[in-house]
Every structure is written in C-alpha cells, then in structure tokens.
Design a protein around this nucleic acid. Structure first.
Lengths: 354, 354
DNA sequence: ATCGTCAATAAAAACGTTTTTATTTTGTTT
DNA sequence: AAACAAAATAAAAACGTTTTTATTGACGAT
C-alpha cells in the first residue's frame, strides 16, 4: 500500500501501463475503458480489473487534447467594482452550490469566470467559445436583449441562462416567475387597502425588471385602479440603494404606504431607511420582499416574503446544462419557478388607515 | 474581417499554421512565442507579427498535455447540505471576487470544487494533487490540526490557506487576527462596564474559534477579572444558531449583558433572538459583531463592528498563490489582517446599569 | 585550408488519449 | 478445402504543444 502509493506518486499509471500489464494494445485498452462494444467481454473485464488494481485514472489533459472537450462547465459570476457594496452577489454561493450538486455524478467540473458587466460577460463568453475554455456555460443577469444569448445561440454553443430575455429565441433557461410574484405581492397589498405602492426594482436594462413592472401594473389594472408607476425605482440591488430609495420616497408629497422589494439586500436597506424616516413597519407602512437567502424571518420585524430557494435554481441549471452538453435540444430545457408566499404580516394597513 | 472570423471559426490557427505561413519550423515558432532567447530577434518579430495577424491563441489543452500544467487555480468552497440555511458561505462570493482580481493578468483561471466538510475537503485536495486538476489550491475553514494542510505540505503542492492551523508547519496563509479582534471587542465591553459577556463562536474544531477564545479570556485576564467562559457557545454560523443562542443565554439565571458575535449572520440572529426575549439593544444589552458583508450599518439598531473587507483577503490569497505556483517559498507568503473598529454604539451599558 | 565554435534553425520525440485503418484469427458457407 | 465474412485486436495517426537533439552555415583561430 505505502509502496504502491509511493510508486504512483512517481508516475501515475497511464493507458500504456495498462497495455504493458495486460498485453493488449493501448487502443484496445482505451476502448475497453470507454465501454466500446467492439472489445470482447472477457478482455474488457481483465482490463478493468487491472485498471482498478493499479488505480488508473484517465489523464484529463490527454483526453482533452484528443477530444477537444474540456469537461468543464463555466459560470459567469458578476462582481461589482464598488468595494463597499458587499451583499452583492451573495446568492451566487447558492447557485454554485446547486450547480455543483447537479454536476456531482458527472465527469464535469466547474470553472468560474468573473465579469463586471454585460459587455464583459459577452467578452468572456467569446473567450469560452473561441478558446474552448469549457464545454458549456451558465450565466445570469439577463438583459432585455442580451448580447450573450444572441452570440451563443448563433454559435450553437451549449448554455443555460438564469433568466430569459425578451427576444424570441430558442434556448435553455431557468427563471423565477417574476411577473407572477410581483403581481401577487402587489395584489396582496391592494387587497390590504393600499393604493400608493412603491416598487423597488433592479436596473431597467435587466429583463426581470420589466417582468416585475408588468406584474405590478397588472395587479392595479385588475383592481381597476391606476398603478402608482411614479413610485417605481430601479437601481443596483445594494442595501444602500434600498435605504436611499426608502428615504427619498417617504419624503414625497404623496408617499407610498407600502413597498414591494426585489431582494433581501434592498429590503434590509428599506427597513433601515424607513426607520430613519420615522416610519414603523406594520403601523405606518407595509413591506413585502423577495427572499433570496432566507433571512427575512430575522428582520425587525419579520416581513412577508416570496421565497424560492436559489439552490434549486442552481441545481436545475446544472441538470439542464448536462443535457444540453450531451446534445439535447433546448426546447424541453426550460423551467420557470413560482416562489412560495410566506406571510409574516397582515399587510392590510391600507384598510386600517382609511 | 467577417471572412477571417468565419475562417477562424472553421479551424483556429495553430502553431502549425504559423509555421506554414512563416516558413519556420514549429519548434522555432514555439520558442519565439514563449520568448526564448535562442531565436533571432528579427525572426521572433516576424513570427509575432504573423501570430497577431491571424489571431493566434495558444491551445490550452496542447500546452497542458505537454507541460503537465493546467493553468488552473482550484478553490475549495464549503457548502452545507442543510438547505434552509442559506446565509452560509455568502462571504465566498467576496473571496472569489478578490481571487479573480489577483488572477486577472495571469494566465490562470479559477476552478471551484465544492466540499461538505473537512474530510470531503481532504478528499478534494487529494484529487487535485493526484489527478493534476490544478496547479494550486485555496481553501478556508481551517481546523486546529487540518488534514488538508498536513497532506499538501507533505506533497509539496502549492497552496494558500485562509486561516492558519495550530501546528508548526511552514505554509503560505492569509488570516484575520481573530485573537486581536476578539480581545479588542471584549476589552471594549469590559471598559463599558460589562462583566457577563457572551461569545458567539464557531464550532470548536475550527482554529479561529480557539483564537477568539484566547482573545476573549486575555481581555478578562488583563482586567484582572474572571472570564465568563460559561457564556461561550459554538456552532454553525447560521442566523438560526445566533437566534437560538441569544434566547438560550438570556434565560440563564445570570445572563449576559453583552454579546460578541463572530459574523453578521449570527449577529442578525442574536438581534432577532434578543428582541423576542424582550431585550432592547442599547438599553438592556450591548452587541459587538464582526462584519463580513458590510451590512451591519443597516441592522436595527446599527451596531459596533470590526470590519475587514473579505475581498482584500481574497486578493491577497490570489497574489500569494501566484507566487507560490511560480516556485516562491512559503516563508514570506504569510499575512494577518487586523480588522478595523467601526463604533456605532457606546457599548457602555454596563456602567449605566450599575 | 582546416578545424572547432557558435548561432540559428530544423527535425524529431514526447506528453496521454481517441479514432481510424490494418491485420490476424475464427467461424461459416459453398 | 477454398473463400469469405465477422470478430477481435494491433498498429498507426492524430490532437497542439514543448523540449531535446541534430543539422546547417558563418566566422575566427590555427
């Protein structure tokens, strides 16, 4: 044991080692290991046994060179240059975690490329495709007309996006039903008697910003009311943005009585801003959030959220990507998740105040 | 342009293309590209010009096979199996971000391997070394006697750890001065008149748990007081753990008047737990935290923290790893950061209550 | 003039696979 | 028994590099 491990550290066994040991040629060894049907069952068994014995592990670099594959799945992870803005991207831990679960059994590993913005993302996607850095790609932060999607569809390169852009293209994706969630949150507040509702939204270029506005206005339309579109703000999803937005909006002549927030980071900021503006949650104002890292329950006070475990999205992304890399067509690889309502407040202040 | 790009999509230029185009042999091309001094300056220039013209990019797989290098830096990222526990690991986004900044100019890319616990981590480290999955390794969550460090030092494999174990070994690392931070926090509370101070700590196996206890007790020792070691609790660093600990500790016959928390996740939980226990921060109890994702300012109320941008740790990890992979010895590649005190509360309740 | 030295380059080997093509063996058909 | 097909395996080529070894030509010293 100690002897073998010492030997194997010296030079790990290759296909050639197996050839010498078994007497078969390296071609036959290769076929046996890959389970090709042309090799006789008895031979295959012998070879596998020897491979097992010497602890043979295929050399990824050799395979990569010959096949042109990398056995890597690349992920584009957004990072912001602004350094005092650190909640940003926390959900990526969950995505990577889910992704790695999906990739677990497969022979694929995960490679992370960081990007600063969408242009940077396109650049990275180009590198992945042109240099063959990976066999498949995952990314998020989809724009309304996302250049990465256009490029990759055009190049025929396997990818799965978290989010969908608004162009009619056939590609694999996973998404949260933002239109639905935003509609449900807004509707809940309208039912609670609210008329002036603020929507704390992502930047307008992002596709799901539009989805959320759609759901928001639909809820008002259905109630035959005028949507408070003047209370929609968009920005980076930082805690600071949430805080500043809340303070700003509260100062208006006709301020909101309720907030719909797009993620937990902004929510924390909104709560902080409202506190400073002298507003008390549940007395002066209601807040509904989208819960991305499951800590809304611990906010002061706990607030109503829509919850969708991001890890599940990550896992689905991984499963879809594996299928896509195996050659499956994108048309069946599309899934939109509906987050679950977790009601922690009545959210009916609107009634009480009237 | 369109024509060339179409051509390059067909078959990207290789060293052989350059050989044909220039009339030199592939060996000379290779040497010219790598800047070997044996090739004549004029020749080198010609070759580089042609390479530029046809947009030559070295094939990573070919290089990898020949050199045995992968040009990948692997990161072990911990993920927990428990799914409703999602704050966990948020700081990894920052680490990856910093790391990628350091790797930016280099030819190295970043590969992420997820691990469930320290054993899993050792397993992953073994795979990286034995299969040559990467040229260097980064990991955190160091145990008091960490098997990964022992293994990698023994194998002579380049790595940098975030955190240091307590064994006398020579290896590159980056760390936060937890002993100092914990001491400073405790001392501040003692100066504020507190005697019964709780320490919300990580699991005891983790090396920095011991560091924090050391600093905690040292502060008491220096004040010639008995440390409230009965108020030290350790656990996973979840929000739930913070909350449950706070509730539990508040119920004791001799409860703490102050808390020192190890990260923001537990802090949020502690605040939530204290609220439920009917305790008001700044009136009944003081809390000092270690700020990892820069949101403590938005807590209710904002609390005093020790702040160390994790991205900086990540960047340093990357810089050290590059040097280590370039063959530099570990003895100069060691750095311990002292977090910065951000005082947001007087933390002197102990005086007022007496 | 001849020999070695040096510089520049070419040629060949090697890294570990997979895949294509060639060869051998076995069994079946006539 | 000859011819052929099928099955099993061997041999060779290829993927794109780097590195080692060989070759060529020019130059200076004898």
């Amino acid at each position: 044991m100690s002897d073998r491990s010492r030997h194997s550290r010296r030079t790990p066994p290759t296909i050639k080692t197996l050839a010498d040991l078994s007497g078969y040629s390296i071609g036959t060894i290769s076929k046996a290991l890959r389970g090709s049907p042309v090799v006789a069952p008895a031979t295959k068994e012998t070879i596998l046994k020897i491979a097992e014995e010497v602890g043979y592990q295929a050399n990824a670099r050799g395979m990569a060179l010959r096949t042109g594959k990398t056995y890597q799945a690349a992920v584009l992870m957004p990072v912001t240059a602004v350094s005092d803005y650190e909640w940003d991207g926390v959900e990526y831990t969950q995505i990577l975690s889910g992704l790695s679960q999906a990739l677990e059994g497969s022979e694929y590993r995960m490679s992370v490329l960081t990007i600063r913005d969408a242009d940077d993302g396109l650049e990275a996607a180009r590198r992945v495709v042109d240099l063959g850095l990976a066999d498949g790609l995952i990314f998020s932060g989809i724009l309304q007309d996302d250049p990465r999607i256009n490029f990759l569809v055009d190049a025929g390169f396997p990818f799965v996006s978290l989010g969908r852009c608004r162009r009619e293209l056939d590609y694999a994706h996973v998404d949260v039903d933002n239109e639905w969630a935003s509609h449900a949150a807004t509707q809940r507040l309208i039912s609670g008697g609210h008329r002036r509702i603020a929507l704390i939204n992502p930047r307008a270029e992002l596709c799901y910003a539009a989805d959320r506005i759609d759901g928001f206005t639909r809820a008002f339309d259905e109630a035959r009311m005028i949507a408070s579109t003047d209370l929609i703000v968009g920005g980076d999803l930082s805690t600071r943005f949430g805080r500043e937005s809340a303070i700003e909006l509260s100062k208006r002549s006709d301020p909101p009585t309720a907030f719909v927030c797009v993620n937990e980071s902004t929510t924390l900021g909104v709560l902080s801003g409202l506190r400073d503006a002298g507003m008390t949650i549940g007395t002066d104002v209601d807040v509904i959030a989208y819960d991305d890292i499951n800590v809304s329950a611990y906010f002061t006070p706990p607030i109503t959220t829509f919850y969708q475990p991001i890890e599940v999205l990550g896992r689905t992304l991984g499963q879809f990507l594996l299928k896509r890399m195996a050659g499956e067509e994108p048309d069946t690889l599309k899934q939109v998740f509906r987050p679950k309502l977790v009601a922690r407040q009545p959210d009916d202040l609107g009634k009480k105040r009237v």
